[in-house]
Write a protein that binds this DNA or RNA. Structure first.
Lengths: 213, 213
DNA sequence: CACCTTACTGACTGCAGAGTTAGTAAGGCG
DNA sequence: CGCCTTACTAACTCTGCAGTCAGTAAGGTG
């Protein structure tokens, strides 16, 4: 009998962290932080539990890494997209809301949203990162643009922050719906359709009359 | 030294379950199911841990009881409110959305919403109860009314289910926001203001032009 | 006032699962 | 081809907490 063609394991220092984070995301998303087992994460990543500790000092640090990994790419995206848009609000909205829908459509992000909500009391720092770097930035920027549009008479009177909430909530709710109710057999909302129809609904209610007509 | 005036404990079979559920709600809401300790719940309820087992066979059953307790009263409320409204959609909406906001405003419900989202994979049956008895009922009923209003020409063309989502999402998001970001110092959304402003925004985009004018 | 039922407690058991450690082999380097 | 570094594993320890059980006293009943 010759020695097996595939050794029991290989040294792959570069690839490990990403693989572990991906496996951890799955398990954390399914079970939540406390109920997730490191043995399961390790098995799913194809390494031993002890190997996790070569890359992440504790379970909490692994969890933090998972969330950070999910924030980073979207942070850049949101900021770039909204940063300095100078056209009419309705053009921005018709571009931005479907874009948000597209970003939100990839499942990892939805799973992380669910985790951040569920673990916000156990990991306030994560809720803070999520809030400060993503959500508050988005809300503030959008409501700033709305305020500017109000000054130009494009948009009706009203709290810009609430208008911003009206604009993006259905997208987020669709994602939460998918994470919560679709697994038990409820029909999903199509994010693209929600975005397309809802922008028009929201704009119809936000834009000043003469422009809406 | 006389015997202490207050005995170490009293027999209060009737009052216990409700007290335990209230204490459990607090602890579960703060920690999530897995991280919640029965010792903490017991202490908060003013009984020993063993006493919990006189009323609830397992930790899971206690959790189920907490969620069920929160669903029951609202179930009746939602159904009664929407069941057979026959006026114009905008009248219903101006009545319904603020009512939902008022219901959602009492903190226990928000905490339970967060728990149902966070534990939906660990307790699919709870997600199912929540979905079937409350959320799906509400969405179906509302979108039914919207479809009827479309037939009468009150409301523009579009998927009634998505219109329903557009109508109620900001209320739910405000609640989730309160549970997630307010504890870390973010400013809250005032549910009443959100409801008042958002109904008009949503109606403005939903109602057919001649009626909106 | 004596007795009995039972609501309740304190001190325990068992185990799952986070974190550790001593050892094994992959694979680069001379 | 032999040696050394180190990525990786198997098998352990130990703690925290769900669930148990023998005993205690509240308080109703005759």
């Amino acid at each position: 009998m010759s020695v097996s063609a595939s050794p029991r394991w290989r040294r792959r220092k570069q690839a490990r962290p990403a693989e572990i984070i991906a496996a951890a995301l799955e398990v954390f998303a399914e079970r939540g932080f406390a109920a997730a087992r490191l043995d399961d994460i390790a098995a799913s990543a194809g390494v031993s539990k002890a190997a996790l500790y070569l890359y992440f000092p504790t379970k909490e640090d692994l969890f933090r890494a998972v969330v950070a990994e999910a924030v980073a790419p979207n942070l850049a995206m949101v900021q770039a997209a909204v940063a300095e848009f100078d056209g009419r609000l309705e053009d921005l909205a018709r571009f931005l809301v479907p874009m948000l829908a597209k970003v939100a459509a990839n499942p990892p992000l939805g799973a992380v949203v669910k985790m951040v909500i569920g673990e916000s009391r156990n990991f306030p720092e994560l809720a803070r990162v999520w809030h400060d770097d993503l959500v508050a930035t988005a809300i503030t920027t959008i409501s700033g643009l709305i305020a500017k549009a109000q000054a130009k008479g494009e948009v009706r009177a009203g709290d810009p922050r609430i208008f911003a909430l009206s604009l993006i909530s259905p997208i987020l709710m669709s994602v939460i719906w998918r994470e919560t109710f679709v697994p038990i057999g409820a029909p999903a909302f199509d994010l693209g359709e929600v975005a397309a129809q809802h922008v028009e609904t929201a704009l119809g209610g936000m834009l000043a009359r003469e422009m809406a007509a």
